[in-house]
Computed example of a mutant assay.
Amino acid sequence: MKGKIGLVVGFGAGYVFGTRAGRARYEQIKKQWLKVWHLDPVQLQVTRVQEYAKAQVAAVPAALWTGAVKVVKAASAAGTPEQRLHSAVDATKDAADDVADTVKDAAADAERTTKAKTAAKPAATPKPAAKSKSAAKKTTPEAE
């Protein structure tokens, strides 16, 4: 599915930038794109992506910093250069695993948050059906 979306986006961008129709066609395409961009389902997805990104920004730097500190300590520990190298490599692998776990946890948290927000929204209430003209014209026997 991601490949198809990328293909469509790439095709659209290529058409917009490669068209010889000029500025008028570009403006027409831009206007249509903005209509799509401002649709509620699109904006809902934009909000979800923003929330996900905020969760990642908060979690990942701390894990990266902790990992970098572990690697530096391992590389500067006592021992032969070979021992320090192996220690630093092991610390790097552990730090990478910690960062990956942090990213997975943040992604799961963001997904739970967006699902909870989506589930908490009340369903749209259906509008009452409009009365037909023929039903409005009918009179009851008591009214006559």
Rank of each mutant, 00 (worst) to 15 (best):
V72G: 06
T114H: 10
F17D: 07
K73P: 07
E27L: 11
V69F: 12
P122G: 01
G14K: 00
A129F: 08
K115A: 15
A124N: 07
A68E: 12
T102A: 00
E111F: 10
K127E: 13
R20Y: 01
V46H: 14
V71L: 01
D90R: 11
V42D: 00
K121C: 03
E27W: 07
E82I: 13
G79W: 02
Y15M: 01
W65S: 15
T125K: 15
K115V: 14
E142S: 15
D94F: 13
V60E: 07
T139H: 15
V49C: 08
L85K: 12
A58H: 08
A143C: 09
D98T: 10
A130T: 14
K131W: 11
D97W: 12
T66K: 15
D94R: 13
A135Q: 13
Q83L: 15
V16T: 00
K93D: 05
H38K: 09
D98C: 09
K133L: 11
R20I: 04
P141L: 15
A119L: 14
A107L: 05
K115R: 13
A116Q: 14
V99M: 02
V36K: 03
E111K: 14
A21Y: 03
L64C: 05
G67W: 01
K104T: 14
Q32K: 04
A62V: 08
Q50G: 15
A91N: 02
V69N: 09
D98L: 10
A129R: 13
Q45I: 12
Q56I: 04
S87C: 03
V57D: 08
Q50P: 07
S76Y: 09
L7Q: 04
Y26P: 02
H38W: 04
